[in-house]
């Protein structure tokens, strides 16, 4: 039997009267990439900080690497890698000093650490910038450095809070590639994101979080199959508001959602539904048939869009 690396039961985090995390249960298994998908304020980062042993829980049970993070913070963090939402690099230090100083926090002996720093610079593709100050790096480079730094202690479990927020697509793909490599090498990943594409790219299993609660749990494919249909037809209208058009598509699809600017028709066969729309005489300015995504799952579960 494999013991979960992280186990949460009825986990709660309160700040005063505000309940940031509201009785959530989940297990993270060794070797998997586990995701928390949800909009800003859903409680993802609070959950991450409790797992990362930098924020005490307010209630419920939490075990990380087999122990209580509140009681064994330093011991837990010695075996974790943490990539926080905002880069916590030492901006006035050089790229290699950032890795070196951080490694010294873990008590890694000098000689061994120097070798490790060289490996990590290669991994992050920053070897040529080793002597530069962090301030002079691009956003993507800083992010890669933050991730490289979190690996200095060869962690069993890597916590990534919004790893690619604010990065351009190219930088994002490069980062995903690095994370896939880590996963292949056996590191367990815990990722929060509000990008469904990222969740689909990286995660074996994920939970959808909304207002501190877990709305659903499963693999990206399972969630799509369970909560939405295989395909989606998006209808955009020019003048009229989409919600006013909602009644006109009644019966064309098992489920529809009306957003401010478009209608979404959830269906097993997008082309057939699109033809039915045309037969009904509707004239949307744009018709798009696509595969359903986690964005649709989120919309279905919460009635709201993930990214506004």
């Amino acid at each position: 039997m494999t013991e979960p690396l992280v186990m949460a039961r009825a986990l709660v985090k309160r700040f005063g009267n505000f309940v940031a995390v509201d009785h959530i249960d989940f297990d993270v298994l060794p070797g998997e990439a586990f995701g928390f998908l949800g909009p800003n304020g859903a409680g993802k980062s609070s959950t991450m900080r409790m797992i990362g042993a930098t924020s005490p829980r307010s209630g419920g049970e939490l075990r990380v690497l087999g122990v209580e993070p509140d009681d064994y913070g330093p011991q837990v963090r010695a075996r974790l890698g943490v990539v926080p939402q905002e880069d916590n690099l030492d901006t006035e230090l050089s790229v290699s000093d950032n890795l070196y100083v951080y490694g010294r926090y873990f008590g890694i002996p000098r000689r061994q650490l120097r070798q490790r720093v060289a490996e990590l610079l290669d991994f992050a593709q920053l070897a040529e910038r080793a002597g530069d100050r962090v301030n002079d790096l691009s956003g993507g480079m800083k992010r890669r450095l933050t991730i490289a730094r979190s690996l200095v202690n060869q962690p069993e479990l890597l916590l990534l809070d919004e790893p690619t927020t604010g990065l351009d697509p190219q930088a994002r793909h490069l980062l995903w590639d690095r994370l896939h490599r880590l996963k292949r090498s056996g590191v367990t990943l815990l990722v929060t994101t509000h990008y469904m594409e990222e969740a689909e790219q990286l995660c074996d299993r994920l939970v959808v979080m909304d207002r501190g609660r877990i709305a659903a749990m499963g693999s990206p494919r399972q969630l799509i199959e369970r909560y939405v249909s295989r395909e989606v037809v998006e209808l955009r209208f020019d003048d009229e508001e989409a919600p006013a058009m909602a009644s006109l598509v009644n019966g064309l699809a098992p489920h529809t959602e009306a957003l401010a600017d478009r209608l979404l028709l959830y269906t097993e066969d997008g082309d057939l539904t699109a033809q039915a729309v045309a037969r009904r005489g509707l004239k949307p300015t744009n018709v798009l048939v696509r595969r359903a995504s986690l964005e649709d799952v989120f919309l279905r579960l919460t009635g709201r869009q993930l990214v506004d």
Partner: peptide
Amino acid sequence: NWWSGAYRSMLAAPLS
């Protein structure tokens, strides 16, 4: 503060 992450990075490491 955010322009230097020194304390936060110490806290992400095993320091209390």
